[in-house]
Design a protein around this nucleic acid. Structure first.
Length: 279
DNA sequence: AACCCAGCCAACCGCTTTGTA
DNA sequence: CTACAAAGCGGTTGGCTGGGT
């Protein structure tokens, strides 16, 4: 596929931005907005391509940006969200006001990844622990090694059904504790949230819809198709319904590729305390 | 003082997604 | 429906800086 370069490169300036350029861009955007990045540099009199202008604005010049070091809370948030979302920097940034995806990505690679390594216990890396390929989230396979297995792990608590009952946990330290204690209780398998969601695929819903009927209410769902998500002690316990109609079909819809976002969203919002038990 | 090296971070690149004619 | 342009995103690069020798 591919596409033409975003701009005519000849004559375009590259490299670090000067103070003057910054001032021109800021005053232009504040006056005229940025409805068209491609046309902006020409209108503003900048020898930069639109893409470069956009990046400079988004990552550095935006007035609502927070400058300075990340707080411990922000770092913890990033770790937790990364556990749930993977390398979806823009989604993580959306939940950290004043921080950019680029900034978060840099912090992750320079500080947090290292910090997490120190907590990397060996248990979850045992070959026996089930890993399921994630077609909905291709990133998870490529960045598996980067992905903190603790920040969001899932352990099964029953073997009667594939999705019979499961517990998803959030914060890294809670996870570690929880996982270890659960493993001590004979629970063998641990998953990342992505792995778990990946398992709720078309065939899962085909089967569920076949067994329960398209308009089944949650209440009439097979009681074994239920799971709970807990952890993130700082979060409020909360019950959530999928979709206004609350039928099985809506629920299934929410797990397709488009709906995946709402799952992640919901988990991030509730901090992982998502409970779905025969709603 | 000069050099080396590792860490940091702004900026770039190339691809995907979204919007529109 | 298709093609194309623009925006958005994540991975990578390269220059700067500070600490160590």
């Amino acid at each position: 596929m591919g596409r033409a370069p975003c701009c005519e490169k000849t004559g375009m300036k590259k490299g670090p931005w000067s103070l003057e350029e910054d001032q021109i861009l800021v005053s232009f955007v504040l006056q005229h907005g940025h409805s068209n990045w491609r046309a902006l540099p020409k209108q503003a009199g900048l020898l930069r391509c639109g893409k470069s202008c956009r990046l400079r604005w988004v990552n550095y010049l935006r007035p609502d940006l927070k400058r300075g070091n990340f707080t411990k809370e922000e770092e913890d948030t990033i770790i937790n969200l990364h556990g749930m979302l993977g390398n979806r920097w823009s989604l993580i940034a959306a939940r950290l006001p004043g921080r950019t995806d680029n900034e978060i990505k840099n912090v992750w690679h320079t500080h947090l990844k290292k910090r997490l390594k120190d907590y990397q216990p060996t248990e979850l890396l045992k070959p026996g622990n089930k890993k399921i390929s994630n077609k909905s989230n291709p990133e998870s396979s490529t960045s598996e090694s980067e992905h903190d297995p603790y920040s969001c792990s899932l352990s099964r608590s029953s073997s009667t059904s594939d999705i019979s009952s499961a517990t998803l946990m959030g914060s890294e330290f809670e996870n570690k504790k929880e996982t270890e204690s659960r493993e001590g209780n004979g629970i063998e398998d641990c998953y990342s949230f992505e792995d778990f969601v990946a398992e709720i695929d078309e065939s899962f819903w085909d089967e569920a819809l076949y067994n329960n009927g398209q308009n089944s209410e949650f209440g009439s769902m097979d009681p074994e198709i239920s799971f709970e998500v807990k952890g993130f002690d700082e979060l409020l316990p909360q019950q959530i319904r999928f979709g206004p109609a609350g039928n099985l079909n809506d629920f299934a819809q929410s797990t397709d590729d488009d709906g995946m976002e709402s799952w992640y969203d919901m988990l991030a919002r509730t901090g992982g305390d998502l409970k779905l038990q025969g709603l």
